[in-house]
Amino acid sequence: MINIVGLSKTFNGQPVFSGIDLTLDTGDVVVIIGPSGTGKSTLLRCLNGLEQADSGIIELHDQRVDLATADAHSIRALRQRMGFVFQNYALFANKTALENLTEGLTQVQNIPKSEALPIAMSWLEKVGLANKKDAYPSELSGGQQQRIGIARALSQQPDIVLFDEPTSALDPETVDEVLNLMRSLALQKTTMLVVTHEMQFAREVATEVVFLSDGGIVESGRPEDLFKQPKDVRTQTFLKRVRQ
């Protein structure tokens, strides 16, 4: 189980969000939706330590980290158990597809290269890109880069994967190849916390949908409830706007 308690963040004294509580069981897919600029991406970045939270605790099974005060060592240990998929893929530009995956295995987890290579290859096969193992990111399409970004995150065998708007930078025709991969990961019980504007994906795949707005969680619930009968007027307005 993954518990996030009392997560708060301000930028230059302005609160972005405060008092965020979330719980994910193994295999849960929690999708965060909400208007732009409400701190959805910042929330994920705080969980991964890319931004320092003002307050908040994360409990990842046996590990408990205070996100406001954790030292570099604790944050690194946390990151090793938490994959991160970036909006702009962020593949290492100087490494091939295969090296993007082996980098974390050999340099962070200290797995010998001879053992890391088959692990990385098996993940490339799972995302259908084994034939691109020697390609550099610039030689791949956006969809292919994002699938490798997802494989990179998963190859580290994390307890949870954070997806920060994984399809926002993609061409419309390549969005589905990434969403289909995420659907299959959900079926395989991969624990995911996803920020996205893909409502159809949220409706189909999420175990819980969280609506974030005005600095906090406005409401959350099962997708069939939240999408059909949103309780708060802000959720209703938002869903009405995105449906148009």
Binding site: A77, F86, Q107, A153
Partner: peptide, 16 residues
């Protein structure tokens, strides 16, 4: 900067 962030996100140290 996302290159540094991606490296840190997989658990690398800043020097790595």
């Amino acid at each position: 900067s996302h290159q540094t962030e991606a490296a840190l996100s997989i658990g690398m140290t800043l020097s790595q």
